[in-house]
Simulated assay, not measured.
Amino acid sequence: MARRLVRKISLTGLVLVGLLLLNISPVLASTQSDIENSLICPACFAEAMSVAACQDSTAQQIKEEIRQKLAMGQTKEQIIKIYVDKYGEKILTNPPKKGFNLMAWVIPFLGIMMGGALIYLALGRWVKVPRTKKGREKTKPGVLDDYYNARVDEEYKKYL
């Protein structure tokens, strides 16, 4: 009976150790997910689909390679650099924020700011009430009204 208990305990321990070895730790799993989301599948360049979203055999192969490299102790940056060296920067889902690619990050914000400024200026001109010039004399209300009323009465009498 003691033998049976020892076997059960050792078998349970072996199973647990095996599951722990086969299972990737949560930190490695999140790192793997980050890497998969930051790389475009080489078979899906036209659709720009990430390795995580792609179901192609190439994506499955890359997922397995990433899992192996993480198990060997490589960092996220090292793994991404390997794929950038192999395929170029077009494999990245987000262009790096340096050099010419910086324009892809800056131009949309500049466009929004410039568009807002143009709308502000246009609305300001449409709503703005024109000012009178300083040198121009203002006429009193009613002076011209009497003149035009008299003219209208004269014209009206001609046709009656």
Rank of each mutant, 00 (worst) to 15 (best):
residue 42 P to L: 00
residue 27 V to D: 12
residue 117 A to Y: 10
residue 47 E to W: 00
residue 41 C to K: 02
residue 89 E to Y: 13
residue 17 V to M: 04
residue 4 R to P: 01
residue 2 A to L: 08
residue 144 L to G: 15
residue 112 I to Y: 13
residue 82 I to C: 00
residue 23 N to L: 13
residue 87 Y to W: 07
residue 10 S to C: 05
residue 147 Y to A: 06
residue 155 E to P: 03
residue 11 L to R: 05
residue 6 V to E: 04
residue 73 G to W: 02
residue 98 K to A: 14
residue 30 S to P: 00
residue 13 G to C: 01
residue 110 L to C: 13
residue 145 D to E: 15
residue 135 G to P: 03
residue 106 V to I: 15
residue 32 Q to I: 07
residue 81 K to T: 11
residue 90 K to M: 02
residue 88 G to D: 00
residue 85 D to W: 05
residue 87 Y to F: 09
residue 69 K to C: 02
residue 58 T to V: 15
residue 160 L to Y: 12
residue 65 E to T: 14
residue 52 A to E: 12
residue 7 R to Q: 02
residue 7 R to Y: 03
residue 91 I to A: 06
residue 156 Y to D: 05
residue 110 L to R: 02
residue 121 L to G: 08
residue 42 P to W: 00
residue 19 L to A: 04
residue 45 F to P: 00
residue 54 C to E: 03
residue 97 K to M: 13
residue 37 N to K: 15
residue 83 Y to E: 01
residue 97 K to F: 14
residue 28 L to C: 07
residue 3 R to Q: 07
residue 9 I to N: 08
residue 82 I to K: 06
residue 121 L to I: 14
residue 90 K to S: 13
residue 73 G to R: 04
residue 11 L to Y: 05
residue 139 T to P: 08
residue 21 L to N: 05
residue 141 P to I: 09
residue 104 A to H: 14
residue 69 K to S: 12
residue 127 V to R: 12
residue 6 V to F: 07
residue 123 L to I: 08
residue 137 E to K: 12
residue 42 P to C: 03
residue 159 Y to M: 09
residue 20 L to E: 09
residue 149 N to Q: 12
residue 148 Y to G: 03
residue 53 A to K: 12
residue 51 V to S: 00
residue 32 Q to D: 05
residue 79 I to S: 03
residue 34 D to Y: 14
residue 137 E to L: 12
residue 61 Q to V: 03
residue 121 L to V: 14
residue 12 T to I: 10
residue 17 V to D: 02
residue 40 I to Y: 04
residue 124 G to W: 00
residue 85 D to H: 05
residue 62 I to S: 01
residue 149 N to W: 00
residue 50 S to I: 06
residue 96 P to R: 15
residue 3 R to S: 04
residue 116 G to K: 02
residue 78 Q to N: 02
residue 81 K to N: 13
residue 60 Q to H: 15
residue 150 A to P: 01
residue 100 F to C: 08
residue 76 K to Q: 13
residue 11 L to W: 01
residue 144 L to K: 14
residue 148 Y to V: 12
residue 25 S to M: 04
residue 86 K to A: 01
residue 43 A to P: 04
residue 136 R to V: 15
residue 48 A to S: 15
residue 130 P to A: 11
residue 123 L to G: 08
residue 10 S to H: 03
residue 93 T to L: 09
residue 16 L to V: 10
residue 134 K to H: 01
residue 45 F to R: 01
residue 129 V to E: 10
residue 38 S to E: 14
residue 114 M to S: 12
residue 158 K to D: 02
residue 70 L to C: 04
residue 147 Y to H: 02
residue 69 K to N: 11
residue 25 S to D: 15
residue 4 R to M: 07
residue 13 G to L: 08
residue 111 G to W: 10
residue 159 Y to L: 11
residue 115 G to F: 13
residue 72 M to K: 14
residue 62 I to W: 02
residue 4 R to Y: 12
residue 157 K to C: 04
residue 148 Y to K: 08
residue 141 P to D: 10
residue 46 A to E: 14
residue 74 Q to A: 15
residue 160 L to H: 11
residue 67 R to E: 06
residue 87 Y to A: 05
residue 48 A to F: 08
residue 131 R to Q: 13
residue 88 G to A: 00
residue 99 G to S: 09
residue 12 T to A: 14
residue 109 F to Q: 09
residue 36 E to D: 08
residue 148 Y to C: 03
residue 99 G to A: 12
residue 70 L to S: 10
residue 150 A to H: 07
residue 44 C to D: 00
residue 41 C to E: 01
residue 4 R to F: 06
residue 129 V to D: 03
residue 17 V to Q: 07
residue 159 Y to H: 09
residue 136 R to E: 10
